[in-house]
Every structure is written in C-alpha cells, then in structure tokens.
Simulated assay, not measured.
Amino acid sequence: MVNLDALSTDILVPRMVSKATDIAGPHWDNIKTTATHEFKVLASRIREIGSAVKEGELSMTSARILLRMARRNLIATVAMLTVMVDAAVQKLVNGVMSELKSHINTAIGFTLV
C-alpha cells in the first residue's frame, strides 16, 4: 500500500521547489534558502509518516493529523521569513525617506514626509 520509494526527499523536494519557484515568482530569491531547507524537513516528515503507516505504528487518521501539523510548521516558517523580508524593506524605505525628508518638504513647501 505505501510506496516509500515514491516518498524519497530526492523526488519530493525538487517538485516542491519547482512549484514554489513558480508560485513565489520574484519573491522566491528572498526565501529560497530557508524554504528549501524546510521543504526537505517536510519531505522527510512525510516519508516518516508513510513508514509508520506501513509498519502499522500510525493510523491514517493520525497520519493526516501529523501532516497538518508539519504543514502548519512550514507555513509558520515561511510567514516568519515574509515578516523578516517585510521588516527589511520597511527599514530600507524608511531610511531613504528619512534621508530625503527635509529636501522633499522644503521643495514642496509643506510637510509631506
């Protein structure tokens, strides 16, 4: 019933990365290192779940629960990366605007920035 060879990280991770690259588009470069690592963790976890089901150590219901938990961990990690990237971009924009604040406000004749 369970085909552990099909659950190899060598098979799952490249497919995950390929799809993530397509979906994330230009944002992929910001998260690819950590996301790829986390895909490896998820793929490994999926294989472990499959192995436990095959050995009768885990029911299909428990397997589904464990997969949901693993997915949520991946989502939390990618969300954290997004927040970190967002914070870095905010810092960059705020720094640029701070640098230009006086110049812009003087040129426009009122406090815009």
Rank of each mutant, 00 (worst) to 15 (best):
S18T: 15
V41A: 13
R71N: 09
L66A: 08
A52Q: 04
N105L: 07
K40M: 12
T77N: 11
A43D: 03
T21D: 02
A88T: 12
F110G: 04
V2Q: 00
A52T: 01
V96E: 13
M60Y: 07
L7G: 04
I46D: 01
L42G: 02
E48Y: 05
D5I: 02
L81I: 12
V78H: 02
I65W: 12
V2I: 10
L7R: 04
M97A: 04
T61K: 15
V113A: 12
L42A: 01
I108L: 08
A107F: 11
L7D: 02
S8I: 02
I11T: 13
A70H: 08
A6T: 11
E38T: 07
K101A: 05
A20D: 07
E38Q: 11
V89N: 11
R68I: 05
A70M: 13
L4Y: 00
M80A: 15
T77I: 12
D10G: 10
T77Y: 10
W28P: 03
I46R: 06
L100S: 10
N73L: 14
V113N: 09
I104V: 14
L74T: 09
R47D: 02
L12I: 11
R72I: 12
L12W: 00
M84F: 09
G109H: 05
G56D: 03
L74N: 06
D5C: 09
V78M: 05
G109C: 06
A43F: 04
A6E: 13
V85C: 09
K101E: 02
H27D: 14
E99T: 11
D86L: 10
I65Q: 13
V85K: 03
I108H: 06
L92K: 03
M84P: 01
L7I: 12
G95L: 08
R64S: 11
S8W: 00
E38G: 04
R68P: 00
L92Y: 07
K91M: 05
E38A: 07
L12K: 05
P26W: 05
M1R: 04
D22L: 14
A24E: 00
V53D: 01
I104P: 00
L58F: 02
A6W: 10
R71F: 07
V17C: 02
I31H: 00
E48V: 05
T77V: 13
I46S: 03
R64F: 11
R68G: 02
D29R: 15
I31K: 01
M97R: 07
A87S: 12
S18V: 13
L58N: 03
S98W: 05
I104F: 07
M69W: 13
K19C: 04
M84R: 09
M97W: 07
K91D: 06
T36E: 15
G109D: 05
I104E: 04
H37G: 10
I104C: 03
L74W: 05
L12F: 04
R64Y: 12
V113G: 06
G25M: 10
F39P: 00
K91R: 14
T36V: 14
T82E: 15
A43C: 13
D10H: 12
A88S: 12
I49C: 00
M84G: 04
P26N: 08
